[in-house]
Every structure is written in structure tokens, then in C-alpha cells.
Design a protein around this nucleic acid. Structure first.
Lengths: 161, 161
DNA sequence: GGCAATCGTTGAAAAAATCAACGGATTGTT
DNA sequence: AACAATCCGTTGATTTTTTCAACGATTGCC
């Protein structure tokens, strides 16, 4: 397991580059850090034949209030047509079903099947392990701080603290 | 300019989804937030015919100590062959030159030309504006906290505080 | 000198992102 | 009640990205 190293950048390059302008660019830092993280996650989910994306879909499908495909698209920052393909695959594997929303018959809710829930249970453990190894250099407090900042970025300020 | 909205998730969906398990997954949050951010950056750089990637390459090329293509690959989390294409394009546009490192003639350093520096100067202003709008929901302190956390994630703990 | 490893490069194959268009369903207007 | 306008999921075509395997050139090692 050599590629599980925590520090993303080889120390020598890091010390030479960390003062560069780019190394202070939030966008660059985040993309780099989490591109590696996604790769790690994909790797860990491989035994279950899931990828980060399909895991995300399956995860929302397990929530008590499932999402429509359109909502999945905006949430995953994806084109609606990509969601179709993603859901198609999970349907074919019997992990998920499409349910037409009776309140608006244009919408399709994506719901997990019992098998889907079983697979998700195992997958979420692997995902947690992947996150743990991705954030290895951060203390528990720092991880929570990061999570809070990202949540604020994505969902906006918390209405009820 | 409608797509410049700060809050990434439509409020209604956010309040319904923000308590879901996925909404606490750092990997998911980060990828979502910065996928949108990269799109925004690409959009802003369009007038200069640059993208987030080529901007990153150009930026390192402007540093006093330029990087080899291999280093660029690990830094940008890219396959070496992708770096070739990226650098090829910048070379064709006269923004960058390949210089063989005389200390190891296998290596090619990617250095900015005067034109490259001029373009980069303008590009970095656009990038700063893009970052500013991407992080609009965060206070200055929070932005610095986020930057520090990401730097720790990418470069490891600061040797000299 | 010879051998293994590294760097940049090429080219091909697989996966993903982007965009335009369509039918079914809904909402709002008149 | 009919109409237009809009939204949803879907299909298909097109372009980018990603991923991998291979190759010459160069280096370090023994």
C-alpha cells in the first residue's frame, strides 16, 4: 500500500513550490487535494463495483426523502443526461428503482432497494475509511472545521445554529 | 450575470438535503463546491483563451524557479501525457518555452516568455476575482482558515511556523 | 560497459462532459 | 377549454478528459 501516503506532495517538491503564487490559490489547492481523494475513494469502492458518483447517488437513494433526478443533477454538479446513465446502471444492478412522483408525474424519484441499502451500508464504511486516510494530516478539530467551512460554502450560512 | 450566485444549492433543496449523510461527506462537499468553482474560473479566463489548467501551468512557469513537466504532472494531479498537450498549446501560442535542464537532460523546464508573463498578469487578476466570488459566503477569516487547512492537506504541516 | 530506472512523448482506447433536440407532463393565460 | 410556455427525463452526437501501454533518450549504479 504505497500510494496511501498522506502528504500529497513529495516533500522536496513541496518545500520548493509551497511559496509559489499558485500554492496559495484555494481553487488549485482544493482541486488537487480532492482529485487525489476521489481517486482513492474510487479505488476503495472498486470491490463493490461502485465509483464515487454511483456511491453518491446510492447514498441519497437511501435517505428517507429521496431526490428527483433533476435534484441529483444540481447536487452532483452534473448534466441531467449523466444522471440518466448513472441511475440506469444502478437500476440494472437492482440497487435502485425509479418511482414517478405522483405529485408531479414529470419527476422520477430515485429510491434504494433492499439490496441497494445493503450495498450502501458496506460502501459507506469504505467511504469513511477513505475520508479518514485522505484527511490523515488533519487533527479531529481541523477536520470538523474543514467540514463546516465546506458546508457553508455549499449550503450557505446555517439558518439555525 | 445570473449564474454568479454565491450559494451553490437552491435554498429549498439545501434545507431538505443538508441533513443527509452525504451532506456531511467532506469529499462530496469539496468536489461539489470546487467543480462549480472551476467552471466559474474557466468562464472568467475565457477572454484570454486560458482554462484553469493552462492558467496553472502558466502560473508556475512565471515562478523564479520553474518546474519540470514531471513535477507539473504530480502537482496538477495529471498524467504526464496530459502535461505534454497542455505545454504544447502554450508553446504554440508563444506564452511558454521548454528548456532542457542541463543538470539532467531528460528533464524539460517550463518557463514563461515575456508575453506569457503579460498574459499571466491579467489572468491572475481574473482568477482572484473568480476566487472571490466562489468564496463569497465566507468571511475573510474563514477564507484564510480554509486556505490554511487546504495547504496543510496538500503540503503537510508547516515545518516553520 | 551494461542494466535498470526516469523523463518526455506518442498513440490508442475508455470514460466523462457538453450540447441540441424531443415527447410527456405541468402550469399559467386567455 | 384550449393554448402557449415551461419543466422533466431521455436520447444521441460531439468534443474533452482520463487512462494505459509502449518507445527513444538520458541518467545513475555496479
Amino acid at each position: 500500500m504505497a500510494d496511501e501516503a498522506a502528504g500529497a506532495v513529495p516533500a522536496e517538491l513541496g518545500s520548493r513550490f509551497s511559496s509559489a503564487a499558485l500554492a496559495h490559490d484555494v481553487e488549485f489547492l482544493a482541486v488537487k487535494a480532492f482529485a487525489a481523494g476521489t481517486r482513492r475513494l474510487n479505488h476503495r469502492l472498486r470491490p463493490l463495483e461502485l465509483r464515487a458518483r454511483s456511491y453518491a447517488v446510492l447514498s441519497t437513494a437511501c435517505e428517507p426523502q429521496p431526490l428527483t433526478q433533476r435534484e441529483l443533477a444540481t447536487l452532483l454538479e452534473l448534466d441531467p443526461s449523466q444522471v440518466v446513465a448513472l441511475v440506469d446502471e444502478l437500476v440494472a444492478r437492482g440497487l435502485v428503482v425509479r418511482v414517478t412522483d405522483e405529485r408531479d408525474r414529470r419527476r422520477r424519484l430515485v429510491q434504494a432497494s433492499p439490496e441497494g441499502r445493503a450495498v450502501h451500508a458496506r460502501a459507506s464504511e469504505l467511504a469513511a475509511a477513505a475520508e479518514d486516510s485522505s484527511l490523515a494530516t488533519l487533527s479531529p478539530d481541523e477536520r470538523e472545521a474543514l467540514r463546516a467551512l465546506l458546508r457553508k460554502l455549499v449550503f450557505g450560512p446555517d439558518p439555525a445554529p
